[in-house]
């Protein structure tokens, strides 16, 4: 019971935070907090199987899926605070409070009777107990949900599929394009050198050198350039190549 009273405020706070968070990623993480706390509560109520499933499936798979999509959609985007529909916030909070109070009172009024407890049901263990029910009484639902999962997976593939609007460029098309770019714009033919080629050191942070000794600008991450984490060491390098010159 102590577990409950510790976790309950945390859950409520996290839920409220999720609803009011400005950035979507913060909302996702707060939801993770709620879900983990729920898993613990399941464990406290003699449902170890669900405890594990909640963490693996819900928090680990579903929530991660949310995060992936958030990143695809735009992790930087944040909702504006201004509400566009007039009276929506007021009506929502009003109805929400009304609903919550009503249900809570309703719950409090119900007499549940004696709590039987799951000792007898879990006699052979929680997982066998669930297995017995799942494969006898709920076998049909089990089969249907498996079909549902397959359908969902197919559905996701279909929805995310992008049709080709133009024919796929063949090897020849690519080669022609490369030649033309080199002729018009001087883009280098051939693959780009990986960083560290033609250098003394095989390091990611050292730029690649072109055959004529100059630095290949495309081998340096633009991010480093933007952040200003670059240092021009061309002088030191040429000095290294001609040790006799220094005296």
């Amino acid at each position: 019971m102590i577990v409950f009273w510790i976790l309950a405020p945390i859950m409520v706070a996290a839920a409220l935070g999720m609803v009011f968070a400005r950035k979507a990623v913060h909302a996702a993480l707060l939801l993770a907090v709620v879900m983990m706390s729920l898993a613990v509560l399941y464990a406290a109520q003699d449902a170890p199987f669900l405890f594990v499933v909640q963490i693996i499936v819900y928090t680990g798979a579903i929530l991660m899926l949310f995060l992936f999509v958030l990143m695809l959609v735009g992790v930087d985007s944040s909702d504006s605070i201004v509400e566009t529909i007039k009276g929506q916030r007021l009506a929502a909070t009003g109805f929400g409070i009304l609903f919550g109070v009503t249900v809570a009172i309703g719950v409090a009024q119900t007499t549940v009777g004696a709590v039987v407890g799951l000792d007898e049901a879990n006699a052979d263990g929680n997982v066998p107990g669930i297995a017995v029910l799942l494969f006898s009484k709920y076998i049909f639902a089990f089969e249907m949900t498996s079909a549902l999962l397959i359908t969902a997976a197919l559905g996701a593939m279909v929805l995310a599929h992008r049709e080709r609007l133009s024919p796929k460029p063949t090897q020849r098309d690519l080669a022609e394009r490369r030649m033309r770019d080199w002729a018009d714009q001087g883009k280098p033919l051939g693959p780009l050198p990986t960083p560290g080629v033609y250098a003394r050191h095989n390091a990611v942070d050292t730029p690649a050198l072109l055959p004529d000794g100059s630095i290949a600008p495309t081998s340096v991450s633009r991010v480093l350039q933007v952040r200003g984490n670059m240092r021009d060491v061309s002088k030191e390098l040429t000095a290294l190549d001609e040790p006799d010159k220094e005296s």
Partner: peptide
């Protein structure tokens, strides 16, 4: 209004009405 959230508000309002009436009947 065409906004999904307005419709969702209506759904919540309807749910409130249903719960209240069930409570009223049972009490």
């Amino acid at each position: 209004t065409g906004f999904v959230r307005s419709y969702a508000l209506a759904v919540l309002g309807g749910a409130v009405v249903v719960v209240l009436s069930i409570l009223a009947v049972s009490l």
